[in-house]
């Protein structure tokens, strides 16, 4: 029953699409806007199986690999920066008074508006795309993690002091381990924007990548390819989220909230 209810909205959307596609194709069999599901499946099979005539590579997997590397680098850099900066700002009052206002203002800068600067500064290569993702989500992660640090009960810090812990020991042994599960939660939330920045950067200047491909075939109204790529990106995002969630559960069993972890 529960599974049936979960599937219901997906089935409904599929039916609506199939109906609309049928109507359009009945009027004009060469309509490209809403291709029939059978066409999409055929296109998808061709995309994942047939190598490109010029390069001999299967572009679909090539695009996937390149995009995932960009995403991983950007998110990884942002996570590391966010963790270190969030811990320092949250734990040490001097750091907080120096940097928290700066980070608050920085996080208001629209990252896409900075993209031209990145292209000018770093060229059109990989660096500018990774930088956009990192710049886009780092301020959010810093603010999130510094807030989480502040929320750690002061009793814990005092207790560690009474056990003789230095500031470094408190940061490394008391605060950092408690931040890691929150970092995973923060990264899960930041992945949506991260994908957005990745696809935006690829759409504007790239030679390969999932976002690049979508915006390339848009010129030919190749909805079957676009829909395949969109479905694939959605699937990847879903799987990454799932992996992060289960990693968090496995690595930090003590952090599981009593009422379950929601979505």
């Amino acid at each position: 029953m529960g599974y049936a209810l979960t599937l219901l909205p997906f089935v409904l959307v599929l039916f609506v699409y199939m109906g609309a596609s049928d109507i359009r194709l009945a009027e004009n069999p060469s309509d490209k806007i809403l291709p029939a599901p059978s066409t999409i499946v055929a296109t998808a099979e061709r995309l994942v199986g047939e190598p490109d005539k010029r390069s001999g590579e299967i572009l679909f997997w090539n695009d996937t690999g390149i995009s995932l590397v960009r995403l991983a680098l950007g998110v990884g850099i942002a996570a590391l920066t966010g963790l270190v900066a969030g811990l320092l700002i949250g734990l040490f009052p001097y750091m907080r008074s120096t940097f928290s206002g700066f980070v608050a203002v920085l996080s208001m800068v629209p990252p896409l508006a900075v993209l031209p600067i990145l292209f000018i500064a770093f060229g059109l290569g990989e660096v500018s795309k990774v930088a956009l993702i990192a710049i886009g989500i780092t301020p959010f992660l810093i603010r999130d993690l510094s807030q989480r640090t502040v929320e750690i009960p002061s009793e814990q810090i005092v207790k560690a002091q009474t056990l003789g812990a230095s500031s470094l020991a408190i940061a490394l042994r008391v605060v950092l381990p408690q931040l890691l599960p929150r970092l995973i939660q923060g990264v899960r939330l930041a992945l949506g924007p991260a994908w957005l920045f990745l696809i935006a950067a690829e759409a504007i200047a790239a030679e390969a990548g999932l976002g690049y491909r979508i915006f390339l075939v848009r010129r030919y109204l190749a909805m079957d390819i676009i829909l395949t790529y969109v479905a694939w990106i959605t699937f990847l995002a879903f799987i990454i989220d799932l992996l992060l969630r289960s990693a968090g559960r496995r690595l930090f069993p003590w952090s599981e909230p009593a009422g379950g972890s929601g979505l």
Binding site: P153, E155, Q156, V158, K159, A160, T162, L163, G164, A165, S166, L168, A169, I170, L172, R173, V174, P177, Q178, F252, W254, S255
Partner: peptide, 30 residues
């Protein structure tokens, strides 16, 4: 010190909490 709440470290097991009583102050790294 023992507070009403939050006196032990939630991210350590019971045994690790007791080891930490020695470890945290043992070196600057804890």
């Amino acid at each position: 010190i023992v507070f009403q709440r939050y006196s032990v470290f939630g991210h350590m097991t019971v045994r690790e909490n007791l080891i930490a009583a020695e470890a945290l102050g043992a070196t600057v790294w804890g």
